[in-house]
Design a protein around this nucleic acid. Structure first.
Length: 465
RNA sequence: GUCCCUAUCGUCUAGAGGCCUAGGACAAUACCCUUUCACGGUAUGAACCGGGGUUCGAAUCCCCGUGGGGACGCCA
């Protein structure tokens, strides 16, 4: 059987970290088995769905590189199909019209809750042999309810949680079409999963309770039941549940914050799934290893520090041209133009193993392109009389020195000695003069990359006279 | 309230009855490297929710508690 998985977000918000992980796992499973990964947009909640949200989801998927093989399919475009199936079910007696009003339903629920019972529909319009239904009231458009089995259990072997059973007596005859004729979620999912030939459904474990209903529906339709795997939720850094109000952010926010997609992907893969002690791996490797046996059944807390570590790791080995492009773009957003400055790819190599994200990289690289006037305090502390003397001597030698790291380092060292200064007593003021800060990568590399012209000019700017 | 899920270091996890004196990673701490700051390296501390079973033997299996989460919509 050819594997077919799907990711089925509803466009009512951005793609958050939990959704991204679900998509990643479904994608990886399809890839792993040479199957098909399908994107389906569950946009039947017209009131809450927005084109912006849809775009945000598409952007997020693209940034992560989770390409779908089929779709996107839109449920709103499949209405005729749903109505067709509803008509079939009605005709076959697998579903029926229910004329109970919303108000009556609410009272029923209130009563049940008052009696500390699980609120559910009492089946008053369910046709049963031997009972006669009241005549349908005039002018009340009915909903369509699924005739759910009343006895026995629904069970499935969940790919991540193991066997799960529900007694049919716990379920009620849920609505599959509203009074206005539009189909409801559980029904659309079932028709789609069937029509699209989905073999493996991977989704958040908030859907566990929908699964028995969907299985019953599938069986009533005579459709095969796919394998289900319910992924536990991802909690925030503080262990709290993620919500719009609290901590839930778009995957695109990670892009903004300077994370590399491969770091986010690696982190997400490892959050709730494992392959022995492996921590750092490529998506190619992940796809080869991915299986359902090693998905964690319990909720996982998001850990930004570990993501940061992974991001720093991928930054260290990222291609300089790529990093240069990112740094340039991020600087441009701050209105900083890098054209005419030193070679960005070389500057970036100086910093890629010292920063944790692309924004830090852009900040670190900034002073190479914009000469920062050292603050007065910094001047007073570092650009002292003897230091300036040393810098002056150094400037002279630098104007003639061969422009190559080893040579430059030697020159600085020699100048320090000749000026009666210890290395840091000259190198730190030099950093302050050049970059406006007392710390930097090794001074010879900084000099080399900055270039003679700029070095001499920046030294001149701090030297008296 | 009812039903369902879940429980190993602070965090992510390894562990499918003896390989466990419970392993790895992040974080923490210490030291080393670096005549700057980082990076890096080495080392250390740190956990099987509780109680009952089953078994020669249980972190692993079963039951009961407890904690955490989810669902109970003419939302998805």
């Amino acid at each position: 059987m050819k594997v077919r998985t799907r990711f089925a977000p509803s466009p009512t918000g951005f793609l958050h970290i939990g959704g991204a992980r679900t998509a990643l796992f479904a994608w990886a499973y399809a890839r792993r088995h040479g199957g098909t990964f399908i994107l389906r947009i569950e946009d039947t909640d017209v009131a809450r769905s927005t084109p912006q949200a849809l775009q945000a989801i598409l952007d997020g998927m693209q940034w992560l590189g989770l390409a779908h093989d089929e779709g996107p399919f839109y449920q709103m475009q499949r209405m005729p199909r749903y109505k067709e199936v509803i008509a079939e079910m009605l005709a076959a007696g697998k579903a029926y019209h229910c004329y109970m009003s919303k108000e009556d339903l609410d009272t029923l629920r209130a009563e049940q809750e008052g009696r500390k019972e699980k609120p559910r529909y009492d089946g008053r319009w369910r046709p049963e042999p031997g009972t006669t239904l009241p005549p349908p009231p005039d002018g009340v458009p009915p909903v369509v309810r699924f005739r759910n089995p009343q006895d026995g259990v629904v069970a499935w072997d969940d790919q991540v949680k193991g066997r799960i059973e529900f007694a049919n007596s716990e379920l009620d005859d849920f609505i599959i079409a509203r009074a206005d004729g539009t189909p409801t979620y559980n029904f659309c999912v079932v028709v789609d999963d069937r029509d699209m030939g989905i073999t493996h459904v991977l989704r958040g474990d908030d859907h566990v309770n929908n699964t028995p209903r969907q299985i019953n529906l599938l069986q009533a339709l005579g459709a095969p039941v796919p394998h289900y795997g319910h992924l536990s939720m991802i909690l925030g850094d503080d262990g709290q549940k993620l919500s719009k109000r609290h901590g839930a952010v778009s995957v695109m926010q990670y892009e903004e914050e300077g994370y590399l997609p491969e770091a986010v992907l690696n982190y997400l893969a490892r959050l709730g799934w494992s392959h022995g002690d492996e921590e750092v791996f490529s998506m190619e490797q992940f796809v080869q290893w991915f299986d359902f046996d090693h998905i964690t059944a319990s909720a996982a807390q998001f850990n930004t520090e570990k993501l940061n570590w992974l991001n720093a790791h991928y930054l260290k080995q990222a291609d300089p041209q790529r990093l240069a492009g990112e740094a340039t773009r991020r600087l441009a957003r701050q209105g900083v133009v890098v054209a005419g400055g030193p070679d960005m790819a070389r500057v970036v190599v100086l910093y890629r193993d010292r920063v944790a994200n692309l924004n830090e990289l852009a900040d670190a690289v900034h002073p190479f392109f914009v000469a920062a006037k050292p603050a007065d305090e910094m001047r007073a502390q570092h650009l002292t009389e003897p230091a300036l003397k040393g810098l002056s001597a150094l400037r002279e030698r630098l104007s003639a020195c061969a422009w190559q790291a080893a040579e430059l380092g030697q020159t600085v060292k020699q100048t320090a000695t000749d000026s009666g200064l210890k290395m840091p007593q000259l190198a730190i003021p030099l950093r302050v003069a050049l970059l406006g800060m007392p710390q930097s990568p090794s001074i010879d590399a900084v000099l080399e990359v900055l270039g003679r012209e700029r070095v001499l000019a920046r030294l001149a700017a701090v030297l008296p006279g």
